[in-house]
């Protein structure tokens, strides 16, 4: 048996024939194994869904009770037999509940890591190296220019700016699921204890994080707050909202954006960001290469992102590597998965 007999990329996603399931399918399938709750990976309409409890909860929050025919929760470290395969979930460190899926069959182990990061994150279980024969890795930041600094230092920049410009409102663009809560947790860790304001689009998911015991301090909806009262405050909002009509409710807003893309100046300038914060929920180049090495995999499949550079790197290290042409996965920071109307609609 070869690795491609176990997992094969097809139009609907990564298909496991011997196990009778798909991983993160982009079209409705009978049985779906889902790595994490971001909308490009967790879609509604599947027959049966296997995922962590948190991922299932997030899907329910977003799509409603009937997002799938049936669901089954699985914990980190738990193994399940599916068809001729065994499937084990391991923490991916990307967002709350995110998992790598290890599929073993006929003596071969393949790890589909989904989105992952090996940097510390107070809002989720740390990433775990899973030894394997084939490692499927994302490549969102798969260029050596992407090296994410210590996130606490980036949050320090934000708090320094709040101290220097107490009459301005600081708007932090951050993806609603994961990044926003991580930024809030980091702000709290840095000792800032004033209320933090939230854009309407992230209230529900943030409340869910708080329920799960992630310490986020006092949070308030920004809706209905008087303009003058927002001076000197911090508000978290989806990235697209920070450059829209919605910002006119703030006094002299200063726009920050928490994203790995902020490492590249042209990207930050293009968005009109005044305070780029290089905080990413994806592994950076050093993280990707170190992780690939540590899994001991002799073969690497590279999906969504900058596949070319990472494939090249693997090859120079004597690893068999190939890009996996999966479509339908984007980086959430790029607003791809976000309906254009979301921010304007959230105004109401």
């Amino acid at each position: 048996m070869r690795p491609h007999d176990i997992l094969l990329p097809i139009a609907s996603g990564l298909c496991c024939k011997p196990g009778g399931f798909h991983i993160d399918p982009v079209r409705p399938v009978e049985r779906a194994v889902i790595t994490h709750g971001h909308s490009d990976h967790a879609r509604p309409g599947h027959g049966a869904v296997l995922a962590t409890q948190q991922t299932l909860d997030m899907m329910r929050l977003r799509y409603g009770e009937n997002f799938a025919g049936s669901t089954q929760a699985i914990g980190y470290g738990e193994t399940l037999r599916l068809g001729d395969t065994t499937v084990t979930f391991h923490p991916a460190g990307h967002v709350l509940g995110s998992a790598q899926v290890a599929v073993a069959c006929g003596g071969i182990r393949i790890v589909a890591s989904g989105d992952y990061k090996d940097a510390p994150d107070p809002t989720c279980t740390p990433f775990e190296i899973v030894p394997c024969d084939v490692f499927i890795t994302e490549a969102t930041f798969g260029l050596p220019v992407f090296r994410h600094p210590d996130a606490a230092g980036e949050v320090r920049k934000l708090l320094d700016s709040v101290a220097l410009f107490p009459e301005r409102a600081h708007l932090v663009g951050a993806y609603s699921l994961g990044k926003a809560q991580r930024v809030i947790a980091l702000i709290r860790q840095a000792g800032y204890d004033a209320p933090i304001y939230l854009h309407g689009a992230m209230e529900k998911i943030t409340a869910y994080y708080a329920e799960r015991g992630v310490p986020l301090g006092e949070l308030r909806p920004v809706k209905g707050v008087k303009k003058a009262d927002l001076a000197g405050t911090i508000t978290l909002a989806p990235p697209s909202a920070t450059s829209d009509l919605w910002t006119r409710r703030f006094p002299d807003p200063l726009t920050a954006f928490a994203s790995g893309w902020m490492r590249v100046r042209a990207r930050a300038r293009q968005r009109g960001v005044e305070l780029p914060l290089v905080i990413s929920d994806h592994a950076d180049w050093d993280g990707l290469t170190a992780t690939i090495a540590a899994t001991g995999a002799g073969e690497v499949w590279v999906t969504h992102g900058q596949e070319d550079a990472l494939v090249h790197w693997c090859q120079t290290k004597g690893l068999a590597a190939q890009p996996l042409d999966l479509v339908g996965y984007g980086d959430e920071d790029e607003d791809v998965g976000m309906p254009a109307a979301e921010s304007e609609a959230a105004e109401a």
Binding site: D118, P144, R147, W285, D286, G287, T289, A290, A293, A294
Partner: peptide
């Protein structure tokens, strides 16, 4: 090379 696993943890 560039990016030769600056993170000591897993790059070893």
């Amino acid at each position: 090379q560039a990016g030769e696993g600056a993170r000591p943890a897993s790059g070893e």
